[in-house]
Design a protein around this nucleic acid. Structure first.
Lengths: 141, 141
DNA sequence: TTCCTTGCAAACGATTTGCATTGGA
DNA sequence: TCCAATGCAAATCGTTTGCAAGGAA
């Protein structure tokens, strides 16, 4: 069975407060990365804006959620699932929707091989990579 | 020989002003993507902050430079070279340095093939992709 | 001369902080 | 009870805008 929001917080030693529970619930409900603006609207009246920002930072520090910025400067949050798989994002440039995608194992191997080449060429130590795909979603295209 | 900054501006029908020339010179000097903050420091006293923002927007509209945002929310600018090839970015997570890299032709073909799969799976029309590589540069590792 | 561009200061939107109050452990 | 988290309002940061003065064509 799914872990409850309360369990998630307990596990990371964060105290169980109403704003934190509401925020995690919204992020889970959304099932894809969500913007602050969007969260704010959905929690209107239930959570003060400053609390939203503070709680998001707490959840980020506790590694319950992850933050990133889109190419057009929108701050997004997504849940870090337990068995978090390495994944990528597919952006709709028209409506702003973002969904998580997995790439084939074979392709990821190709990426890893290419990364090793780059590391040698530039004398870098590469720890992470992300492939961003931009385009139009089924509704917008 | 290299094109002069004045020639670049003339070619795009922008009037030749001191701030515009200084900004382009700094970006060329840097030879890699540069942040606004960094530009600001280097042009300290020579260009007003509002002018910097306005000029950057003008240069962007004229397609002399290109803007993008890093995953950690820093706005960067880079020159669009004449024969601008599709390229990717290598980020140093310690000092913030970003350099441009090219990936092998073979690898780019693999990416294209994977993109076609994704388009089918999700019924998206993908128009652009970027591979971001994060790690430590030769100095920081 | 005629506009376009600049510099300054004020305005703005997103995020952060101070502080008194509330509520979880 | 006690300390951490909240809500509100004020502060701050990055960016944009209005307007009068300056400079390119």
């Amino acid at each position: 069975m799914e872990k409850t929001v309360t369990e998630i917080l307990l596990e990371k030693n964060l105290s169980i407060t109403s704003p934190r529970k509401l925020i995690i619930e919204e992020i889970i409900k959304n099932s894809n990365p969500i913007s602050i603006e969007s969260l704010q609207k959905r929690l209107e009246g239930k959570v003060a804006l400053s609390t939203l920002y503070r709680a998001l930072n707490d959840l980020k520090s506790a590694e319950i959620i992850k933050e990133f910025t889109t190419t057009d400067s929108i701050t997004m949050f997504e849940l870090i699932s337990l068995g978090e798989e390495h994944h990528h994002h597919l952006f709709c440039t028209s409506c702003g929707k973002i969904i998580d995608i997995d790439l084939s194992k074979k392709f990821e191997k190709n990426v890893d091989a290419e990364v090793v080449k780059i590391e040698k060429n530039f004398n870098y130590k590469i720890t992470e990579h992300t492939l961003e795909l931009l385009g139009l979603c089924s509704k917008c295209k």
